[in-house]
């Protein structure tokens, strides 16, 4: 049975490679029983959205949220 620490590794690997059927089933069963790991998964998804958002802001041309406020500029 997967423990929580292994589950975090499994969830991270799922972002980087396709998990095998057995690996996916094991993870699903763990997540069904473990709220903490479901929340960890939510955090990983938010992190990925933030990385995408960072890229979009970087490539945007208007009202760039990434750029620090600079004093003395109009």
């Amino acid at each position: 049975m997967l423990n929580c620490k292994d589950a975090t590794h499994r969830m991270s690997e799922a972002e980087d490679r396709e998990l095998g059927l057995g690996e996916r089933v094991e993870l699903s069963i763990h997540l069904a029983m473990c709220k903490g790991c479901r929340n960890y998964q939510q955090h990983l998804h938010i992190l990925r959205d933030a990385c995408r958002g960072y890229r979009e802001h970087l490539l945007g041309t208007d009202g760039d949220l990434l750029r620090p406020e600079r004093k003395g500029e109009s």
């Binding site: 620490k5 292994d6 903490g36 790991c37 929340n39 960890y40 938010i46 959205d49 958002g53 960072y54």
Partner: peptide, 27 residues
Amino acid sequence: NAHWQPACRPAAWADPEAALREKHFWA
């Protein structure tokens, strides 16, 4: 036993969509 410490068990993060619109979040 490699399960979460009760005090450290991840809790849901509230309103991520709003966070991504905040300049301070990006800082």
